[in-house]
Computed example of a mutant assay.
Amino acid sequence: MYWVWMLIVSLIAGIIFGPLARLILPGKQNISLGWTILGGGVGAFVGGLIAKALGVKDTSGPDWTQYLIQIICAVIVVAIIAGYQSRSRSTV
């Protein structure tokens, strides 16, 4: 049940972390809003797993370190998606 809850929360966090990741990335990313949110959600999920493995998630109050890890992961995932999208569009 924990994984399902974490997946739902990560997709909701993707609404915030995806666009934030695009703001952090330099240049223009030619990806849709859907891919941006999905990338942010995947980054939030992976970042949450990393934070849990590091023991960061077990703190009281806002988990700022966890959020930072999730945002960094969201930036990486959105950058990968943007790179893949630009590469696939340039070959067509």
Rank of each mutant, 00 (worst) to 15 (best):
T91R: 15
C73R: 10
I76H: 02
L25H: 06
P19G: 10
G39M: 04
W64I: 11
I72N: 06
I81G: 02
K28M: 00
K57L: 01
G18P: 11
K57A: 05
Q70H: 02
V77I: 15
I15H: 06
F17Q: 13
D63E: 09
A82S: 14
G55S: 01
G48S: 09
T65M: 09
T59G: 11
I12Q: 10
L20H: 07
D63N: 15
L11F: 14
A53Y: 06
W5K: 12
N30M: 11
I69P: 08
T91C: 03
I80C: 08
R22L: 12
I15L: 13
L20V: 05
S60Q: 09
G41Y: 04
L25R: 13
A74E: 10
V42E: 00
A53C: 00
I81S: 03
G40R: 02
A13H: 10
I12N: 07
G43H: 12
L68T: 12
Q66L: 12
Y2I: 10
V42R: 04
S60E: 10
I71T: 13
M6I: 12
L49Y: 11
M1G: 14
Q66T: 14
A21Y: 08
T91N: 12
F45H: 07
S90A: 15
R22E: 05
L38A: 13
R87C: 02
K52E: 06
L38K: 06
V56P: 11
I24Y: 00
F45K: 05
K57H: 11
I80A: 13
A79N: 10
I50T: 10
T59A: 09
S60H: 08
L25Y: 09
M1Y: 08
S90T: 14
V56H: 03
T59H: 04
T59Q: 06
A44H: 11
Q70Y: 01
G39I: 10
G27T: 07
L23E: 10
I80Q: 06
V46F: 06
G39F: 03
V56G: 04
G47W: 05
R87M: 14
G18T: 11
R87P: 00
P26F: 00
